[in-house]
């Protein structure tokens, strides 16, 4: 007997073939309905004509990109192509850089997030972010998760907070591993666990959108697979945008992919299409390792 995949979504893909012989048409139909066409999902985030300047230097040129809800959208492209800059526009992280100037419109659920009357702190509670290197606070595992809910005043009692900490850790697939050491330091966990702790921390403020900037690039393949499995589970409840340098990862985890180059979106579409039959030659050259 072969052990099951860490990433569950790979199992049905393989089973699907076997089912044909089994004349188990039900399973087949079920497997197909779970792969709902992401194009049919409603749009969570719209971006219109986004230009970003760092001082004199323009980093993004007229980005128009729609991100569907409850799905994973990956942003790929060579270093310096603007994918992380774009990601940081979505939760207004670029605001903290003095020389950075953003123009254009980004809307979440139809509301302009650059509206001056909007509370940025509240916006960032709705948009969680996970970074390349796991960066737990130098606090206990419990306090890492409880920090956000406390400052945003999301819970009213200690019991409620305990519950939120637990449910966040459960969603991030970390609960079983840490439930007996919640008072221990977050930095004492392994790299992969720390990253899942950061994801739990992001989930704790009940965001709608989770932004991930190369969340697996500092992790080994097993920890990466665990995170990818987690991303796949999370997409039922969250809209996820992930920046990744690994084309294979983009192909594995996302339903849509956008290819950035020199500050522009060169091509955007269904992930399967981008990786089997990209329409733009630049995209093809990049994903096949021909970039000249």
């Amino acid at each position: 007997m072969v052990a099951t995949h860490i990433v569950e979504s790979e199992a049905p893909m393989l089973d699907k073939k076997l089912d044909v012989n089994d004349q188990d048409a039900n399973n087949l139909a079920e497997a197909e309905t779970t792969n709902v066409d992401p194009a049919k999902k409603s749009t969570k985030i719209t971006s219109e004509d986004i230009d970003v300047y760092y001082g004199e230097k323009q980093a993004l040129f007229g980005i128009n990109l729609d991100i569907p809800e409850n799905s994973v959208t990956s942003l790929i492209g060579p270093s310096g192509c603007g994918k992380s800059t774009y990601l940081r526009c979505i939760n207004r992280m670029n605001d903290v850089i003095d020389i950075c100037r953003v123009s254009g419109t980004i809307k979440i659920d139809g509301n302009d997030i650059y509206d001056p009357s909007l509370d940025v702190v509240e916006l960032r509670a709705r948009i969680g972010m996970v970074f390349q290197k796991p960066n737990p606070f130098p606090k206990s595992i419990y306090d890492n998760i409880a920090y956000g809910p406390r400052i945003h005043g999301l819970t009213e009692s200690k019991d409620e907070l305990d519950e939120l900490v637990e449910s966040s850790l459960v969603k991030a697939g970390l609960w079983k591993e840490v439930k007996d050491r919640l008072a221990g330091p977050g930095t004492g966990l392994s790299g992969g666990q720390q990253q899942r702790l950061c994801i739990a921390r992001a989930i704790a403020t009940k965001p709608e959108v989770i932004l991930m900037d190369e969340p697996c690039s500092a992790l080994d393949p097993i920890a990466t697979a665990t995170i990818e499995e987690l991303i796949d589970e999370l997409r039922t409840n969250y809209t996820i945008v992930i920046v990744t340098h690994s084309m294979q990862q983009a192909a594995r985890v996302s339903q849509r992919t956008a290819f950035f180059h020199l500050g522009k979106v060169i091509e955007e579409g269904e992930t399967t299409q981008i990786f089997t039959n990209p329409q733009n030659e630049k995209t093809q050259d990049y994903i096949t390792g021909r970039f000249g």
């Binding site: 084309m247 294979q248 192909a251 990786f275 089997t276 039959n277 990209p278 995209t283 093809q284 994903i287 096949t288």
Partner: peptide, 9 residues
């Protein structure tokens, strides 16, 4: 190589 796109085809 984990080929993509044209190479995969």
């Amino acid at each position: 190589r984990q080929p993509m796109a044209l190479d995969l085809r």
